[in-house]
Deep mutational scan, measured.
Amino acid sequence: DRHTIHIGDITIHLEGFSEEELKLAEELIKRGIHLEEVKRILEELYR
């Protein structure tokens, strides 16, 4: 499954994450956390 996060003019595609995980990812990215770090956090929390 493919999910999309929109932040301003930026569109990020993250596959294989639930709606809850994507909301967390979006919040972290909006707070300035680097995408690679966001992915690592999600994997630690949900895998």
Rank of each mutant, 00 (worst) to 15 (best):
Asp1Arg: 05
Asp1Gln: 04
Asp1Asn: 10
Asp1Ser: 04
Arg2Asp: 10
Arg2Pro: 14
Arg2Val: 13
Arg2Met: 14
Arg2Asn: 13
Arg2His: 10
Arg2Ser: 11
Arg2Ile: 12
His3Ile: 12
His3Ala: 07
His3Asp: 09
His3Met: 07
His3Tyr: 07
His3Phe: 12
Thr4Ile: 08
Thr4Lys: 03
Thr4Asp: 08
Thr4Pro: 11
Thr4Asn: 07
Thr4His: 10
Thr4Arg: 02
Thr4Val: 10
Thr4Ser: 08
Thr4Ala: 06
Thr4Gly: 05
Ile5Gly: 05
Ile5Pro: 04
Ile5Lys: 01
Ile5Phe: 01
Ile5Val: 05
Ile5Cys: 02
Ile5Asn: 03
His6Asn: 11
His6Met: 10
His6Trp: 04
His6Phe: 04
His6Ile: 11
His6Ser: 08
His6Leu: 08
His6Gly: 07
His6Ala: 12
His6Cys: 06
Ile7Arg: 04
Ile7Pro: 04
Ile7Val: 10
Ile7Phe: 09
Ile7Trp: 10
Ile7Glu: 06
Ile7Ser: 08
Gly8Val: 07
Gly8Trp: 11
Gly8Asn: 09
Gly8Gln: 05
Gly8Leu: 08
Gly8Lys: 07
Asp9Gln: 08
Asp9Arg: 03
Asp9His: 12
Asp9Pro: 10
Asp9Asn: 12
Asp9Tyr: 08
Asp9Lys: 03
Asp9Met: 11
Asp9Gly: 11
Asp9Cys: 07
Ile10Trp: 13
Ile10Thr: 11
Ile10Asp: 06
Ile10Gly: 06
Ile10Ala: 03
Ile10Val: 13
Thr11Cys: 00
Thr11Trp: 08
Thr11Glu: 09
Thr11Lys: 07
Thr11Ile: 09
Ile12Pro: 02
Ile12Phe: 11
Ile12Arg: 02
Ile12Gln: 05
His13Tyr: 13
His13Ile: 13
His13Gly: 05
His13Thr: 13
His13Ser: 12
His13Asp: 10
Leu14Ile: 08
Leu14Glu: 01
Leu14Ala: 04
Leu14Trp: 08
Leu14Tyr: 04
Leu14His: 02
Glu15Pro: 12
Glu15Arg: 09
Gly16Gln: 05
Gly16Trp: 12
Gly16His: 07
Gly16Leu: 10
Gly16Asn: 08
Phe17Ile: 07
Phe17Thr: 04
Phe17Trp: 10
Phe17Gln: 02
Phe17Asp: 03
Phe17Leu: 07
Phe17Met: 06
Phe17Ala: 06
Ser18Lys: 08
Ser18Ile: 05
Ser18Asn: 11
Ser18Asp: 07
Ser18Gly: 11
Glu19Ala: 13
Glu19Gln: 14
Glu19Pro: 11
Glu19Cys: 14
Glu19Gly: 11
Glu19His: 14
Glu19Arg: 13
Glu19Thr: 12
Glu19Phe: 14
Glu20Gly: 07
Glu20Thr: 12
Glu20Trp: 14
Glu20Lys: 09
Glu20Tyr: 14
Glu20Leu: 10
Glu20His: 05
Glu21Asn: 06
Glu21Thr: 12
Glu21Trp: 15
Glu21His: 13
Glu21Ala: 15
Glu21Asp: 06
Glu21Ser: 09
Leu22Cys: 06
Leu22Ala: 09
Leu22Lys: 09
Leu22Thr: 06
Leu22Ser: 05
Lys23Pro: 02
Lys23Ala: 07
Lys23Gly: 05
Lys23Phe: 08
Lys23Met: 10
Lys23Trp: 11
Lys23Val: 08
Lys23His: 11
Lys23Asp: 04
Leu24His: 12
Leu24Lys: 05
Leu24Met: 13
Leu24Thr: 11
Leu24Gly: 01
Leu24Tyr: 12
Ala25Thr: 03
Ala25Glu: 01
Ala25Asn: 00
Ala25Met: 09
Ala25His: 01
Ala25Cys: 02
Ala25Lys: 02
Glu26Phe: 15
Glu26Pro: 01
Glu26Ile: 14
Glu26Asn: 09
Glu26Thr: 14
Glu26Leu: 14
Glu27Arg: 13
Glu27Ala: 14
Glu27Ile: 14
Leu28Arg: 00
Leu28Asn: 00
Leu28Ala: 01
Leu28Ser: 00
Leu28Cys: 01
Leu28Pro: 00
Ile29Pro: 00
Ile29Glu: 00
Ile29His: 02
Ile29Trp: 12
Ile29Leu: 14
Ile29Gly: 01
Lys30Arg: 15
Lys30Cys: 04
Lys30Ile: 09
Lys30Val: 08
Lys30His: 09
Lys30Pro: 00
Arg31His: 03
Arg31Lys: 06
Gly32Arg: 01
Gly32Leu: 09
Gly32Gln: 02
Gly32Ala: 10
Gly32Ser: 04
Gly32Pro: 02
Gly32Phe: 15
Ile33Asp: 02
Ile33Asn: 02
Ile33Arg: 04
Ile33Thr: 07
Ile33Lys: 07
Ile33Glu: 03
Ile33Pro: 01
His34Tyr: 05
His34Ser: 14
His34Asp: 12
His34Ile: 05
His34Phe: 07
His34Gln: 12
His34Leu: 12
His34Thr: 14
Leu35Phe: 11
Leu35Gly: 03
Leu35Tyr: 08
Leu35Trp: 14
Leu35Pro: 12
Leu35Ala: 07
Leu35Ser: 03
Glu36Trp: 15
Glu36His: 07
Glu36Leu: 13
Glu37Leu: 14
Glu37Asp: 11
Glu37Met: 13
Glu37Trp: 15
Val38Trp: 13
Val38Tyr: 02
Val38Gly: 00
Lys39Trp: 15
Lys39Val: 13
Lys39Asp: 01
Lys39Ser: 03
Lys39Tyr: 15
Lys39Thr: 05
Arg40Ala: 06
Arg40Cys: 00
Arg40Glu: 02
Arg40Lys: 07
Arg40Pro: 00
Arg40Tyr: 05
Ile41Pro: 00
Ile41Glu: 01
Ile41Asn: 00
Ile41Gln: 03
Ile41Ser: 01
Ile41Met: 11
Ile41Thr: 01
Ile41Cys: 03
Leu42Asp: 00
Leu42Arg: 00
Leu42Tyr: 00
Leu42Val: 09
Leu42Trp: 01
Leu42Ala: 00
Leu42His: 00
Glu43Val: 08
Glu43Cys: 15
Glu43Leu: 15
Glu43Lys: 04
Glu43Ser: 05
Glu43Gly: 03
Glu43Asp: 09
Glu44His: 03
Glu44Trp: 15
Glu44Lys: 06
Glu44Ile: 12
Glu44Thr: 04
Glu44Ser: 03
Glu44Ala: 11
Glu44Leu: 13
Glu44Gln: 06
Leu45His: 02
Leu45Cys: 04
Leu45Gly: 01
Leu45Asn: 01
Tyr46Ile: 14
Tyr46Asp: 03
Tyr46Gly: 03
Tyr46Cys: 15
Arg47Thr: 08
Arg47Cys: 04
Arg47Glu: 07
Arg47Ser: 10
Arg47Leu: 14
Arg47Ile: 14
Arg47Lys: 13
Arg47Met: 14
Arg47Phe: 09
Arg47Gly: 14
Arg47Asp: 04
Arg47Trp: 07
